[in-house]
């Protein structure tokens, strides 16, 4: 028996919004420790890794490890049927071929349940090595979203250059070129507005704007985003999900031919 309850549907709606542009389906691996989803986008350029810790759910029961393959488009449709302040309970029997989403209004007067067929997905699991990144940038997630949106107008790809002075985002194409430089915040009044750079070595990497823009769909989940970079390895774009866990996007760099 698997049962996981959150007092508020909003967070789950935001999580679905953050993955559904990249992934059509995904396997939710449920265990004692929580729920994990790892999946590559269709073109195998990026990887989404979602972790939700069991102890942060309002109720969590997982008697046996369970892998539930879900169509994320269908799941998003179902979650749209929940009001933001509804309690959500996800339920499945062991070895079941369906999962049930139950929504309960705050006054307990409306209860709805939606059953969804599970899918058998033959998805590859990738082993992600622990990496000490040369540069780790923390910045406001809204600012990152804005930069990705603005620079995508100029080119399909964006160069991110990080030094100890700051981080520079550049794009150039037929229309012209764009550069956005962010200096490290000297005086941190509000932590969520800060730009903080931890640098071992300067890094310059090129990434496809299309994927970066897809990652920024997670912006409503967290005020800050963390970018981790090292030469010749995938960029990690991480959004914390309050005390529930995190979503990490890995993006393979563009390399010189």
């Amino acid at each position: 028996m698997f049962e996981a309850r959150l007092m508020n549907a909003t967070i789950l709606k935001k999580i679905l919004d953050a993955v559904k542009d990249l992934l059509n389906e995904g396997t939710f691996d449920c265990s004692d420790s929580g729920i994990q989803l790892q999946a590559m986008d269709n073109s195998h350029v990026s990887l989404v890794s979602l972790t939700l810790r069991s102890d942060s759910f309002d109720k969590f029961r997982c008697d046996r490890n369970l892998s539930m393959g879900m169509n994320l488009g269908t799941m998003a449709k179902i979650l749209k049927c929940a009001n933001n302040d509804d309690t959500v309970t996800i339920k499945a029997q062991d070895n079941a071929d369906t999962v049930t989403f139950m929504f309960e209004s705050q006054n307990h007067e409306k209860v709805s349940d939606y059953e969804m067929k599970l899918m058998n997905l033959d998805q590859e699991h990738l082993g992600i090595p622990d990496t000490d990144y040369s540069c780790v940038v923390r910045m406001p997630s809204m600012e990152f979203a804005r930069i990705c949106r603005d620079l995508a107008q100029f080119s399909e790809s964006m160069v991110i250059c990080c030094t100890k002075e700051g981080v520079k985002f550049s794009a150039s194409g037929d229309l012209g070129s764009a550069n956005v430089k962010l200096a490290q915040t000297s005086n941190v009044d509000k932590e969520e507005e800060a730009v903080i750079i931890e640098m071992q070595e300067p890094v310059t990497l090129t990434f496809a704007c299309r994927y970066l823009n897809a990652f920024t769909k997670a912006t409503p989940l967290c005020n800050q985003v963390q970018l981790s970079m090292s030469a010749d390895v995938p960029l990690v774009v991480e959004y914390r999900i309050s005390d529930l866990g995190h979503i990490r996007y890995y993006l393979a760099p563009k390399i010189e031919e």
């Binding site: 090595p129 496809a208 890995y250 393979a252 760099p253 031919e257």
Partner: peptide, 14 residues
Amino acid sequence: KSKQSGIKNYFSTK
């Protein structure tokens, strides 16, 4: 010209 690399080039297949 730069070329998009695939994510599987960087991570091991379990």
